[in-house]
Design a protein around this nucleic acid. Structure first.
Lengths: 352, 352
DNA sequence: CTGAAAGCGCTTACAG
DNA sequence: CTGAAAGCGCTTACAG
């Protein structure tokens, strides 16, 4: 069941009784072709079962319409949403977007980048893998390829970034905790090899300072960025002489872990220990209790990143302004009632 | 900051003082080249900052090393795992895998397929979008392109399928419910436009028959395949004159919805109403109560699918045997104690 | 072991 | 408006 020889524009030309050039022009939707001719050619295209050879076209044109999206972890819906948002706008702009996953592995990332380059991409949007070295994109930059970072940035890089306002999100969440009457707070999970960690921790710290929380009462406990990490952080903190009463978590997974660990100890997330997450993944809303979290519009950031990339390609530049996306604290029930008044406020819906 | 003119094999040849052919041979790792020459050429490749032009190579070779993976919903970790599994084996086989998302939209799928064809893929693995018409792949089949379906199949298609044993999974889950003493069971969620639905429902029905459950006691309630659908199914069933006491859910999302709805009515999932999910997503283990579910090895199926595709390409065929992957009932706590003895069994861990 | 030449399927000036 | 010709960057027989 071998494939029949593929039809080329030459076959179309013969079928339609015109020259190759005319066919090519029709394919490109040029206005130079007489309508009857175009119709005739289009019919021939159908008849011979033609499929456009983009490789051949790109070879001649020297710039392709495919762009690469390099994602650190596709199995994480947070990043999958980002990819899907980007894909949506590229698709409708007639650009072919290819998604590649690096599984948070810089070596894989290197390979993926190489593949994409060989494929002749016109641009690259990447959410860099953890542990990416600052020089990893040097060669691509020198080659003049438009690159943008999405969601994550690299320290000391001049590549444009599209990311959420992590600092502000952490600030808002921390302020919410303080507003609830908490005076001894913790920041749970994450580690300093992630730029995002510094951003979120920075917001936490600034809120503590601004709102008069003593630095000794702002505990920072690093840990894995998953449920296990959250559980460990909680245990560590409760073993202290003066445990915190509330925690801002690096992300929702950590927050889920904290709530799990609380339950295991017979403590009620909310009334007994307040917890706030970050990212507002879908499960946050359906957890028990529903998790207060900082919502980040992944898909929206993806769309924005795609637009930035399209503009970079069109204006033949590798520079663009950073875009910091708005964030939004979604208040649910994981922070319990107000501790100062000790009165339960009227139940409120999610503040979307 | 325009890109410098790209180096070609001609530049390398000049730099190394050999001919283009020699460079090409070195690039392909041919054993025909004297080692010293190869070293010299490789140095030149480095020096001129060469990047291989795969498009040009494919044009000449007439068969590419890129394959396309078309996924119905990348934001669903269940399918993302599948993609990641495939990617892993392709990557290490020196094949460039590109992931595309159709967002469960047959029109998008059509576009994506077209793009991939134009890109000259050597093969295609697809998890078809819901509502895909049987003829959607006719053209590609005629063109002789190797195609495999993963996770989902199309009715009346001869394209090989790599999918979990949905029938057996549903059978096992149903038998578990019956073993717990339930005599009036329901199948919640899903609809008949999905082949997977028929497979799972078939397993449910066979188990009921085999284990002596009267057909009138095997309720089937269709619904959306998400939390909302699950909630609706539960409400519908409880409104019946003789409500079921247990349900097998089309997937875990439906099961989560059922548990949510039970809680809302003040009922305890498990003791008051037994629920089993399907897919065993990560949250299943961490739910309250932990959800009993049928585990499907998505990543493993992805790897298998990739191997099948590689074999198809190598043997230049469009045919391959179907592969039905083993499934595994993971018993947790959402089915409560045994209803016949009314004694609570000793708590057991997850049977992985 | 290495080189000269043709050709993969397109696009792009250039004529007409 | 349409055609003839060159060329994009490779690989592949074919000589030597």
């Amino acid at each position: 069941m071998a494939s029949r020889a593929k039809a080329t524009i030459f076959d179309i030309a013969r079928e339609a009784g015109v020259s190759k050039s005319t066919v090519s022009l029709v394919l490109q939707g040029s206005g130079l072709i007489r309508p009857e001719t175009a119709v005739k050619v289009r019919k021939a295209i159908e008849d011979v079962g033609y499929v456009y050879n983009r490789g051949a076209a790109n070879l001649r044109k020297a710039h392709s319409n495919v762009i690469g999206m390099v994602i650190n972890d596709l199995t994480n819906p947070f990043f999958a949403e980002l990819a899907v948002g980007m894909e949506r706008v590229f698709q409708s702009a007639g650009i072919v977007p290819f998604i590649a996953n690096t599984a948070e592995n810089p070596v894989r990332q290197e390979e993926v980048l190489k593949s994409l380059m060989e494929q002749g991409v016109a641009g690259l949007i990447v959410s860099p893998a953890r542990g990416t070295t600052p020089g990893a994109f040097r060669r691509l930059e020198i080659a003049g390829l438009p690159i943008a970072f999405a969601m994550r940035r690299l320290p000391e890089s001049r590549i444009p970034v599209i990311a959420p306002d992590n600092h502000r999100g952490a600030y808002l969440a921390t302020a919410h905790l303080v507003g609830k009457g908490h005076r001894r707070l913790a920041f749970f999970g994450g580690s300093s090899d992630l730029v995002v960690y510094h951003e979120r921790l920075g917001g936490f710290r600034e809120a503590c300072e601004t709102l008069g929380i003593d630095a000794r009462d702002a505990l920072i406990i690093e840990g894995e960025t998953n449920r296990k990490g959250g559980m460990a952080c909680l245990e560590t903190s409760l073993a202290m002489a003066e445990p915190p009463t509330a925690a801002l978590c690096f992300n929702d997974a950590v927050a889920f872990g904290v709530m799990l660990a609380l339950r295991k100890r017979g403590l009620e997330p909310g009334p007994d220990f307040a917890v706030v997450g970050f990212d507002d993944v879908v499960e946050a809303e359906h957890y028990m209790p529903p998790l207060t979290s900082v919502a980040v519009d992944s898909a929206g950031l993806g769309e924005r990143a795609a637009h930035v990339m399209i503009k970079m390609i069109q204006s033949r530049t590798t520079r663009a302004e950073d875009h910091i996306g708005a964030v939004n604290l979604v208040v649910r029930e994981s922070c319990g009632p107000d501790r100062r008044t000790q009165k339960r406020p009227a139940p409120t819906g999610a503040a979307t």
